[in-house]
């Protein structure tokens, strides 16, 4: 018997209406998330990973058009919800941790007042208790201050408290929550998110461009390239057995994999223009690309424990040369 997933996204497309016509930002992204699971989305900037989060929250800008054959949260369809229904779900059902804590609260209003907007007339003792739970005991006395008087780490904890703890959502969307923070603070914030996951059984979609961060927090990872989910696999599987050439290139570029003095391999070229051509978006940069890759877009297929969107996925690292696969 299979239980219903907390979140299931199927064939999500997001297009942006621009001066140059409709530009795809997300193309055919599908994934599922169980309660208590952390699913990572990793990719370079512009790969569409944050757009996926906005689409789930239905918070895309007005110029964006989203389509999905399915986008269910706890069995109800997010795509067909009215504005009122969505407002009921945002914050209470789905929480969002923003990317830039320093600018995510109004700069001209004291924190205490802003907390009241989000939490209603909660008694001071409860607020202190919530702050205590995210390690912000000391901040409780400074609530009459303004956001700029606090550090990025403090604000991010506060936002996590608001988004993930105070109103007990069951799904948490984390949009690069640590990119603007110092390394030490970053670790603390990651630990806090995992801690809340353990205590509250949250399902988390964790977006980051940093594979190192992803490796620390995620159970499963999806790799995005030019708007597509090119590979999705359990964390160990992805790191040990990357199958998509882009994933392999990403892993090769991880500094931790290198010994001192060794040159880090970078991925040649850029993703610019990847969506202009038919075929696989990664083909122009792919060392294994064949003629077929440039003509036909690969379907998602299951290889081992992973889902891969490639004509020539490798079964195991280095085991399968592309020429042989083609032959």
């Amino acid at each position: 018997m299979t239980t219903e997933p907390l979140l299931s996204v199927r064939d999500l497309d997001v297009l942006f209406d621009t001066a140059r016509g409709r530009v795809p930002a997300v193309r055919g992204v599908s994934f599922e998330l169980a309660a208590g699971e952390v699913f990572g989305l990793v990719g370079e900037s512009g790969s569409g990973k944050s757009t996926v989060l906005s689409a789930i929250m239905r918070l895309l800008p007005g110029v964006a058009v989203a389509n999905a054959s399915q986008m269910n949260f706890q069995g109800s369809d997010l795509m067909s919800m009215s504005a009122g229904q969505l407002r009921g779900i945002r914050g209470t059902g789905i929480g969002l941790i923003p990317q830039r804590p320093m600018t995510s609260l109004s700069p001209v209003t004291p924190l205490r007042k802003q907390l009241r907007w989000f939490l209603g007339d909660m008694p001071q003792s409860e607020i202190v208790d919530l702050l205590d739970q995210v390690g912000l005991r000391a901040v409780a006395e400074r609530l009459d201050g303004y956001p700029f008087e606090f550090s990025g780490g403090q604000l991010q904890r506060l936002l996590i408290m608001l988004a993930a703890l105070a109103r007990r959502p069951s799904l948490l969307l984390a949009d690069e929550p640590t990119t603007t923070l110092d390394a030490t603070v970053q670790a603390q914030v990651l630990r806090l998110i995992l801690d809340l996951r353990d205590r509250l059984g949250l399902g988390v979609v964790f977006v980051s461009h940093d594979l190192g961060v992803i490796a620390q927090v995620c159970d499963r990872v999806g790799v995005m390239y030019a708007g597509r989910l090119v590979e999705a696999a359990p964390i160990g599987e992805l790191f040990d057995n990357p199958r998509h050439p882009y994933t392999q290139a990403l892993l090769r570029a991880l500094p931790s994999r290198y010994k001192r003095g060794e040159r880090i391999k970078v991925i040649e070229g850029t993703a610019a223009g990847a969506n202009r051509l038919p075929g696989c978006a990664f083909a122009p940069r792919c060392p294994r690309a064949e003629a077929m890759c440039r003509e036909q877009e690969p379907e998602t297929r299951s290889v081992g424990g992973a889902l891969v969107r490639c004509h020539f996925p490798e079964d195991a690292a280095g085991a399968n040369k592309p020429k042989e696969a083609a032959a």
């Binding site: 040649e268 070229g269 850029t270 610019a272 940069r285 690309a289 064949e290």
Partner: peptide, 23 residues
């Protein structure tokens, strides 16, 4: 066949003063 594109310096994009095909 492998294609390794070298990273070229891209100049621009220049904003056009005359914008075509726009209502």
């Amino acid at each position: 066949m492998t294609t390794i594109t070298s990273t070229r310096v891209r100049v621009g994009p220049r904003r056009r003063l005359v914008v075509k095909g726009r209502h």
